[in-house]
Amino acid sequence: MEEALTWIGALPVAGAIRRSAVLYIFVNAAHILSIGIIVGSILPLDLRLLGFFPDVPVGVIGPYLSRAAAIGIASAMATGLCLFSVRPVEYAGNPAFLTKMTLLAIGVLNAVLLHMTPQWRDAVKGGPLSLSVRVSALLSMSIWTGAVLSGRWIGFLSE
Rank of each mutant, 00 (worst) to 15 (best):
R48V: 01
Y91H: 10
T99W: 06
V60D: 07
E90W: 10
D55I: 11
S130M: 03
L138A: 15
E159D: 10
A105F: 11
A68Y: 10
P63D: 04
G127M: 04
I42A: 10
L11W: 14
G107S: 05
A69W: 03
L129P: 00
M116V: 04
A29W: 08
L138K: 05
I17Q: 12
V133P: 01
F52A: 11
E90D: 13
I106F: 13
A76L: 07
V13P: 09
V27F: 09
A10R: 13
A111R: 14
V124M: 10
P44C: 01
L65D: 03
A78L: 15
W7M: 14
Y91M: 11
F52L: 13
L113S: 08
L83A: 09
E3I: 14
L43V: 09
F97N: 04
S130E: 03
V56W: 09
P57Y: 00
P128S: 10
D122R: 14
N94A: 06
A29E: 02
D122C: 08
Y24F: 15
H31N: 05
V60N: 12
Q119T: 13
P54F: 02
L83Y: 10
R121L: 07
A76D: 04
G15H: 13
E90I: 14
S66H: 08
V22P: 07
L129T: 08
F156L: 10
S136F: 09
S34A: 15
I61Q: 11
P88L: 09
G62D: 02
A92K: 05
L114I: 10
G80N: 05
R19M: 11
A68C: 13
R152I: 12
E2D: 14
I143T: 00
R121C: 07
L49K: 01
V112K: 06
V58S: 07
M77I: 15
V135S: 02
G51T: 05
A105D: 05
W144D: 07
L50S: 05
P63I: 06
A21D: 11
A147M: 01
N28P: 00
K100A: 01
A76G: 03
S142K: 03
V58R: 03
D55P: 00
G155F: 10
I17M: 11
A105N: 03
R121S: 12
R48C: 10
S136I: 04
L11V: 11
A76S: 13
P95K: 02
L11G: 08
A70K: 11
G126R: 08
S136C: 11
A14D: 10
L114Y: 06
S66V: 05
W120P: 00
T102M: 05
S41K: 09
T6P: 01
I61K: 03
L103S: 01
L113P: 03
L33F: 15
I35G: 13
G72K: 06
M141W: 02
R121Q: 13
V27N: 08
V56A: 01
Y64R: 15
V39L: 12
F156Y: 12
G146W: 02
S75T: 15
R18L: 14
L139Y: 06
S34P: 04
V22E: 12
G107K: 09
F26T: 13
V39N: 05
G127K: 00
W120S: 07
V58H: 00
T6V: 14
A30T: 13
V112F: 08
L157D: 01
S130W: 02
G80D: 03
L43G: 00
K125N: 06
